[in-house]
Design a binder for these strands. Structure first.
Lengths: 150, 150
DNA sequence: GGAAAAAAGAGAAAAATATTCTATAACAAG
DNA sequence: CTTGTTATAGAATATTTTTCTCTTTTTTCC
C-alpha cells in the first residue's frame, strides 16, 4: 500500500460511485492500473464493502441513543452469547466492548424515546444478567463519517 | 416511499456494488423502473451517498476512543465554533451533542493510545473553555454497521 | 554499472452495466 | 366510465468496467 493506494481509498471513502475513469484521473493513472489497484484493495479486504448511506431523518429514525451496560456475569460463554444476541438487533448499529467503568457501549437507532423504551424492554428480556443499563440521548448529530483518517 | 423502496434501500445499504439487474431481480422489478426508484431515492436525499468502507485494522488504526466533553461556555457562538473545529479533525469520525451529564461525545479513530494523547493535546490547544474531558477506550468493536433498521 | 527479472503502467478491445426512450399496463379522481 | 397520472416492461443507446497485450519503469543481483 503506497501513497497512490491511499489516495484511491481517500476518494472512494467519500464517493464510491466515482467512475474508474474519473478516479484514475484524480490519482494520475490510466484506468487499467487504477482498476488493478482497486481490485487488489478489495481482495485484500482493505476495502471491506461498498454501501449506500441512508439518511436517518428522512427514514424517520432521527434518534441515536448511547446505551452503557454492565454485566454481572463475567465468563467467556456469557460474553459470546451477549455479543451474538446484542448484534442481532437491527437497531444496534454499533457495539463496543469497553475498558473502564462500563463493560459495553452501543449506539441504538430509533424513531423516538418511546421506541427506545420498547427496545430497552426487548433487550433486558433477551439478555439476562445485566447489572446496570444507562442510556444517553444524542440531541444532535454534528458529524458522522465512515471515512477513516489517512 | 413504499415497501419496494424500502427493500431497495435494504439491499443497497448492505451492498451498493450490486448491479441494477441483480437488484431489480431481488425486488421483483425490471431494471428500468428499479433504476428510476434508485435515482429518486438519491435525488430525494434518502440515499445520501455511496461510499467504500475501509478496514480500520488493515489501515493500522485499530483503536476507537470515545471522548466525553463538558464546556464551561454555554453561548451560541461557542457551540458553533466548537462544532466547526471539532468536526474538522479527521480523527473525529462521529460527534454528538448530548443530553445529560456530558455536553458532547465523539468517537476518535487512532493508531494507539499514544496517538490518542497527541490528538488530545491538539484538541485542547485548538478548543478553549473545555471544562472536562474524559476518554473511554474501546477494547473490541463487536458490531459496526451503516445499515439503518428498516 | 548493467543485464535480467519483476512490477507497474498505457491504450485498445471486449464484456457488462447503467441510462434513456417508447410503448403499454395499472391506478385514482372526477 | 374515462381521463389524467403513475408505474412498469422491453429494447436501444451510452457509459463504464474488465480484460488483454504491449511498453515502460523499477528492483535485484552479479
Amino acid at each position: 500500500m503506497d501513497q497512490k493506494d491511499r489516495k484511491i481509498l481517500g476518494y472512494l471513502q467519500e464517493d464510491a460511485s466515482l467512475s474508474l475513469n474519473d478516479l484514475a484521473e484524480k490519482v494520475d493513472l490510466s484506468p487499467s492500473p487504477c482498476w488493478k489497484r482497486v481490485r487488489k484493495l478489495e481482495e485484500d479486504g482493505v476495502i471491506r464493502k461498498r454501501v449506500a448511506l441512508v439518511d436517518q431523518d428522512k427514514l424517520g429514525l432521527p434518534l441515536s441513543v448511547f446505551v452503557l451496560l454492565k454485566t454481572c456475569n463475567h465468563n467467556e460463554e456469557w460474553l459470546e452469547h451477549f455479543a451474538d444476541k446484542a448484534s442481532s438487533f437491527d437497531e444496534v448499529v454499533e457495539l463496543y466492548r469497553m475498558g473502564g467503568d462500563w463493560d459495553y457501549m452501543m449506539r441504538v437507532v430509533v424513531k423516538n424515546i418511546h421506541a427506545y423504551d420498547q427496545f430497552y424492554k426487548k433487550l433486558i428480556k433477551t439478555i439476562p444478567d445485566l447489572c446496570n443499563v444507562s442510556a444517553s440521548f444524542a440531541m444532535e448529530q454534528i458529524k458522522y463519517t465512515t471515512a477513516l483518517p489517512l
